[in-house]
């Protein structure tokens, strides 16, 4: 219950921002940060809770973005329906990649490699297929009406992405409290032991992959509606695969708030650097790469994890002080 309360407080605080902040630049920054947090929350479900590190979440992000865009522009489908279809299509890609990879027993490095390869295949295909606009990309027609998933005010866009992030936070929190989540974590910690306890590791991993893909695909669909443009390098580019894993790693893998905290930290640093040196290509990703290495070296459990570690240590010290005799027997 405590977890859900915290989510409610955090989301309410974020929702209040447009009441005081009217700067489009700031709101834009927050929209992008929340978008990355959403993509990262998708990665976190599979990578953080399930221990399966994907290097190719662009495959789901891009599918969400392209399906949203293509259905609208080529088939005149309503944007919201296109968005839902994008999530479904992203999940389907997750199911296919997951089935192939987990059936083949691919783990760690090999799983990372195969997800990366799938994302690259989709990127190349999208850059040549006529239906996606090939190399030119695809513009979504400006139509600033809520029923077209486009909004006059940036604040509304902001509230929509915030709502999506809120759903993802609640999903993660429910995962932590559910049997499915417990089994997923068990598979991460030791697959053999989990199977001996009745956990169907393949189905659990596959389920996590589909959920993970759905969340990241939602981020992709939102991206298309917000920027009204997709091309292969954006939708299926390595940048999003990297940012999707970077945010939970920085914030804390396998924690509810890790991706959100990580996205805010990473984006702040990236934007801060741009203020200092100007927007030179490569700067933000260079910083992200360095952050990845430094965080793993010095803050291995991420920002949220570091706080949890400290509070754990304090708790244990208090307990130990209270019952020194017991600890001595079993220590």
């Amino acid at each position: 219950m405590k977890g859900f309360l915290l989510i409610a407080i955090v989301v309410a605080a974020f929702a209040a921002v447009p009441l005081v902040v009217h700067s489009n630049v700031t709101l834009n920054f927050l929209v992008v940060a929340l978008l990355i947090a959403l993509a990262g929350q998708g990665w976190n479900v599979l990578g953080g809770y399930g221990g399966q590190y994907s290097f190719g979440h662009a495959a789901f992000f891009g599918t969400g973005a392209y399906v949203t865009a293509v259905l609208q522009m080529r088939y005149g489908v309503n944007a919201w329906i296109g968005f839902a279809a994008g999530i479904a299509a992203g999940s389907a890609v997750g199911a296919i990649v997951g089935t192939l990879a987990f059936r083949a027993g691919l783990r760690s490095s090999y799983f990372a490699l195969v997800t990366l390869a799938f994302a690259e295949v989709l990127r190349i295909l999208a850059s040549v297929a006529p239906i996606t606009g090939a190399g030119v990309g695809m513009l979504i027609k400006l139509d600033l009406r809520a029923q077209s998933f486009q909004f006059q005010s940036r604040a509304l866009f902001y509230l929509v992405i915030l709502a999506l992030v809120a759903v993802a936070l609640v999903t993660a929190q429910m995962l932590e409290r559910s049997r499915f989540g417990a089994w997923l974590i068990a598979v991460r910690e030791n697959e053999d032991a989990a199977m001996a306890l009745g956990v169907d590791a393949f189905s659990i991993k596959l389920g996590a992959m589909v959920l993970s893909a759905a969340i990241t695909a939602a981020a992709g669909g939102f991206y298309a509606q917000y920027f009204l443009f997709v091309d292969a390098g954006i939708a299926y580019g390595t940048w999003i695969s990297i940012e999707a894993l970077l945010t939970p790693v920085i914030g804390g893998v396998g924690t509810v708030f890790g991706p959100l905290v990580g996205a805010l930290a990473a984006k702040s640093l990236g934007e801060g650097a741009k203020l200092v040196t100007g927007d030179v290509p490569g700067l933000d990703l260079m910083i992200y790469g360095a952050m990845l290495v430094l965080v793993i070296r010095f803050v291995p459990h991420g920002i949220v994890g570091a706080f949890a570690d400290v509070s754990d240590r304090i708790k244990r010290r208090v307990l130990a002080a209270r019952a020194p005799a017991r600890e001595a027997v079993h220590g």
Partner: peptide
């Protein structure tokens, strides 16, 4: 995995 990926992103960019 993550460290070599981070290095790769850092060097390239």
């Amino acid at each position: 995995l993550l460290v070599t990926l981070g290095l790769s992103v850092f060097i390239e960019n």
